[in-house]
Amino acid sequence: MDYFSGILGRLIDELGRMPGIGPKAAQRLAFFLLRQDAAVVQQLANAMLEAKAKIRPCADCFFLAEGERCHICSDPRRDARLLCVVEDPKDVFSMERTREYRGLYHVLMGTLSPLDGIGPDDLKIAELLKRLQAGHVQEVIVATNQDVEGEATALYLNKLIKPLGIRVTRLASGLPAGGDLEYADDITISRALGGRRELE
């Protein structure tokens, strides 16, 4: 790493801060940028600056928005009776890819994780409750991850939301679709067995 100093060294350092980018990949990206026309690099820099300047959390759901509200919250065709609670803006993209869900979202910006010092006040829970008190939502779908923190968050939300008379559901856990039983790991099979349902 010490071979690179000055301007090139700084570029590699900056690139190396990005997630998933190690020292080798940072070097490769730096050399790639140096080989490009100035206009191409300018475009990239502009795109980064513009995204940073214009994209901010949606005022309602905290998903990424280019204006005051995100494109989902401002879409009148979405079903405002359904609210899906997720940990992270990335999760909204996962749900949207299915084109199955037509309701709205609420991004918590994390999960309860006392070990990391993260409690309810560090998440967008108060904002969620305020939205629910407005009265349009009939069902909250908790789509936090299936780890102990995601589960704790779901249980905590359930306690707060149930008294409001709103239905609270949790995404099912189980076998991947089209998945061969043979390739599923033991805990997945065990939980799928626990959550089995009767055939109609």
């Binding site: 309860l112 006392p114 409690g119 249980l155 905590y156």
Partner: peptide, 24 residues
């Protein structure tokens, strides 16, 4: 879960968490 719970207990003692955070 146990480590997280112990962290909550610690925060409750110093007034940085509420008792209901223990429940999940």
């Amino acid at each position: 879960v146990l480590r997280n719970k112990n962290a909550v207990l610690k925060y409750i003692r110093i007034g940085r968490a509420k008792e209901r955070e223990l429940e999940p």
